[in-house]
Measured scan of single mutants.
Amino acid sequence: TTIEWNGTKITVDNPQKAKELAKKIAKKLGLTVKVHGNTITIE
């Protein structure tokens, strides 16, 4: 699972952990999480 935001890509083996990490990042930055299959985008 890949997390993408602002040109940065982070690959996380565990999809559940990836989703939790994305939510934490999005919350800190005041952004939203969008899931597209194996890609999680923070916008």
Rank of each mutant, 00 (worst) to 15 (best):
E43D: 08
G30L: 01
I10Y: 04
A26G: 07
T8R: 10
K24C: 15
A18P: 01
P15V: 09
G30C: 06
T2V: 13
K27Q: 12
D13L: 13
K23C: 15
K9R: 10
T41A: 04
K23R: 12
T8A: 10
T39M: 09
T11R: 10
I40V: 06
V35S: 04
G7Q: 06
K27F: 03
A26I: 05
T41Y: 15
P15N: 08
P15L: 13
N6V: 08
H36S: 13
K17H: 10
A22V: 04
T41Q: 06
A26Y: 04
T39F: 06
V33Y: 03
G30Q: 04
N6C: 15
I10D: 00
L21V: 06
E4H: 11
I10S: 00
K9H: 11
P15I: 11
V12F: 12
E43V: 14
I25P: 00
E4Y: 09
N14T: 12
L21M: 08
T1Y: 11
K27L: 11
A26C: 07
A26D: 02
L29H: 14
K23T: 11
K34S: 12
N38V: 05
E4M: 07
K9V: 15
A26F: 04
T32R: 06
T1E: 06
Q16F: 10
N38H: 07
N6I: 07
I40S: 00
I25E: 00
L29A: 08
T8W: 12
L31E: 03
I42Y: 02
T8P: 03
E43C: 15
G7A: 04
E4F: 09
Q16H: 10
K34N: 09
N14L: 05
I25A: 02
K34C: 13
T8G: 14
I10R: 01
E43S: 12
Q16W: 09
V12G: 01
T2L: 10
K23H: 12
K23S: 11
K34R: 12
D13Y: 09
T1A: 09
T41H: 08
T39A: 07
K19C: 15
V12D: 00
I10V: 04
W5Y: 13
N14M: 04
T1Q: 07
T11A: 05
V33W: 03
A22M: 03
N14D: 14
A22D: 00
E20L: 12
E20V: 10
T8H: 15
K34M: 07
L29N: 08
T2E: 12
T1W: 10
K9G: 04
K9A: 10
T11P: 03
Q16I: 12
I3V: 09
K24M: 10
